[in-house]
Amino acid sequence: MKHGFPIASTLIVFVAAAYFLVPLYATFQFSLQMKRGELSLASYASVLASADFINTLSYSAIASFAAILFGAILVVPTAYWVRLKLQKLRPAVEFLSLLPLIIPPVVLVFGHIRLFGSSSILPLTMTSTGTDILLIVGYVVLSLPYMFRAVDNGMAAIDIATLTEAAESLGASRLRTIVEIIFPNVRSAIVAGAFLTFSISLGEFVLASLLNRPAFGPYMVQLGEDRAYEPAALAILSFALTWILMLLMQLFATRKPNQRLLPRFGTGQSRKLAP
């Protein structure tokens, strides 16, 4: 089958590229038209100068960071422990990590509101702090599949069990093993999972709205109802942010443990493992 110029493929790629790029271009163009008769960045200025924008964005950023921290503290030791000592529990742990993919966020938050509502033994929704915690918990659950997979893949790539045995057989303590061998090796996997968590929770709407939190997602929806040009500016900013987060995520997810940024590990390991 010798073919000349790939007409069909070219056509498909052209249509797909148009579908992907036209909305981006249109949104950008639209966002510049706030001032009648001229192209300006007025909509961006309007968005960035708004106190609500700053407040809700920082609220969501803090909630996202908290979710990343909490998620990492929950997932990293568990993934390590399961690989090292609890292989039998692996199917159960993996299954639980995938469950959030089949529980729609709206169902999850419904359950939370009912279970942790006013009449429950753990009435989290009664206080503002409690509701904040519930939101963070929700984000940890939503990002669990991605966080667990990223960290677990990172550990699979370096055969954590053998490394631990090797380090211990050479006399390193468990703590020293974790700090000097395991953590540097999975650091980039954790960071990759963190970027995914961040991109999921920063603009999240359903949980934040139903828990009545002053978060970025509900703010955006409100802005969409009130204004015409600012939402377009927000969409462009948000797309740019997603782009940056995903590029960083891919950068970390595909990086090998001893590649760049971690120059100390390579020498540390060879020193440790050389008899």
């Binding site: 909305p23 949104t27 639209f30 377009a232 797309f239």
Partner: peptide, 12 residues
Amino acid sequence: GVPLAFAFIATL
């Protein structure tokens, strides 16, 4: 989510 909706409103 929300930004995607905004992009399509600005487009179509």
